[in-house]
């Protein structure tokens, strides 16, 4: 089956060790993740994780289901088919000289990126966009020399009125249909 890139987003309880649980699970299940980004949400006590994963449908389904088994993962959805807006932020520290600085500024302008720090021999460029835009800018600036780079990994929201991760109310889980402990004392006959 063909592999494709998927974007999964999860709402997780904001508790210690959640990221550790999630990343440990991804490693031990041998899932390769292109990126994870974590941040707050509009709701207190809930964080949002965005995963970019490559794989065939069965693999992606397993990633989603296994992550859903982590107790603190409240909800996880694959928004790939919701036409998502996906963005990442990159900070690039580019070498400069008196002769290259203006050329770099021109390139940065074309990409609607910003220069957020200037020193004698380098600038820090801040760029936001989809992965392709960040990659293209990176390619153009590489020739000047990249001293350091930080990228956030992608975050994403589905376009339009769809809000698959809107948790309107957090309801109590249902108790098991039978009290496990009382019936167990006398195992039933066939």
């Amino acid at each position: 089956m063909a592999t494709a890139e998927h974007i999964l987003v999860a709402l997780v309880e904001d508790k210690p060790g959640v990221l550790n649980r999630v990343s440990s699970l991804l490693r031990r299940r041998n899932f390769n993740i292109d990126s994870i980004a974590v941040g707050h949400t509009e709701q207190p006590n809930l964080s949002r994780m965005t995963f970019v994963v490559h794989g065939d449908d069965a693999k992606i389904e397993q990633v989603r289901k296994q992550l859903d088994k982590v107790i603190e993962v409240v909800k996880i959805v694959d928004i790939t088919n919701n036409n998502p807006v996906a963005r990442e932020l990159a900070l690039l520290k580019v070498k400069t000289t008196a002769s290259t600085r203006s050329e770099i500024i021109q390139i940065v302008d074309i990409f609607r990126a910003n220069i957020v720090d200037v020193s004698a021999d380098s600038v820090i460029v801040e760029v936001t966009g989809d992965e392709e835009k960040v990659d293209s800018l990176l390619e153009l600036l590489r020739g000047f020399g990249i001293k350091e780079m930080a990228r956030t990994g992608r975050i994403a929201l589905p376009r339009g009125s769809v809000a698959p991760l809107l948790v309107e109310e957090i309801r109590m889980p249902e108790q098991p249909s039978k009290p496990l402990s009382s019936e167990a004392e006398s195992p039933p006959d066939w």
Binding site: V70, I71, E72, K75, I170, M172, P173, P176
Partner: peptide
Amino acid sequence: EKVDLPGYKPTL
């Protein structure tokens, strides 16, 4: 009396 685990609601 009850547990409150929004992330764990097994399907029965």
